[in-house]
Simulated assay, not measured.
Amino acid sequence: MNILWDYDGTLFNTYPAYAKRMSQVLGGKVSEADCYKELKISATHAISFFRLSESQIEEYNHLISSISPEEMPPFDHVEDILKKAGRNVIMTHKDRTGAYKVLDFYGFTKYFSEIVTADDGFPRKPDPASYKYLHDKHRIDLAVGDRELDIIPARQLGLYTCLFQNNKPADFHLEDYKDFFKVVVFK
């Protein structure tokens, strides 16, 4: 099975650290839980929802880039899936430096045949261009993400979809990766 993975909130538990920084930028007037909820839709959505100024956006981006990998651990059991998959690829809006910083720290880089980041110039999700590129090159069977935004491009290409910790419409749903091979079964 060849799997296309989202990065934030799918492979690595990054949103608590992001929510903490957004709450900090907002002067603590918005809880980390409320920031988390809006960030799970998308960072662009959260920035708009909380009406961050340009200087707040700059501060937030600076804080995000300085988060240590220890604050962004991989989800339990995800490495078991990476080891068993035929091929793994990533499509993320994260910049290359930030993505590799965490992947390298946890020794995950070796599991991926290709990592497409914001630096590669593809349009942002839900545009399917990056997914089409990865599918054409790696014959993707399944796209895994934590937000509906992550699977819309896969659906457009006719790929199987799996949402992690999200019950929006998808072919498969997981709350914990330990159940992956019980839940994700192709007919």
Rank of each mutant, 00 (worst) to 15 (best):
K110N: 05
V89I: 11
R51F: 15
D120N: 08
A43N: 03
V30N: 04
S65H: 05
T92A: 09
E58D: 02
V102G: 05
V102L: 00
E54H: 14
S65L: 06
D136L: 10
S55R: 13
S130D: 01
K83A: 08
G121R: 05
I64V: 15
V102K: 07
A118Q: 01
Y133W: 08
I90W: 15
D119M: 10
E58M: 14
Y60L: 15
V89G: 07
S55A: 12
K125L: 06
K132H: 12
S66P: 06
R51E: 06
Y36Q: 06
N61Q: 06
G107W: 00
F122S: 02
F50Q: 01
S53M: 12
P73T: 11
L82G: 04
R87N: 13
T117E: 05
Y100C: 09
Y111C: 13
F49D: 06
Y133T: 14
F105W: 15
S113C: 10
A46N: 07
D34Y: 15
Y133D: 08
P123A: 06
I81C: 01
K110P: 09
F75V: 11
P74Q: 06
T109H: 03
T44L: 13
V30F: 02
A46S: 09
F49N: 07
V78T: 13
H138Q: 03
Y60P: 02
R51K: 14
S113G: 03
C35W: 14
T97A: 11
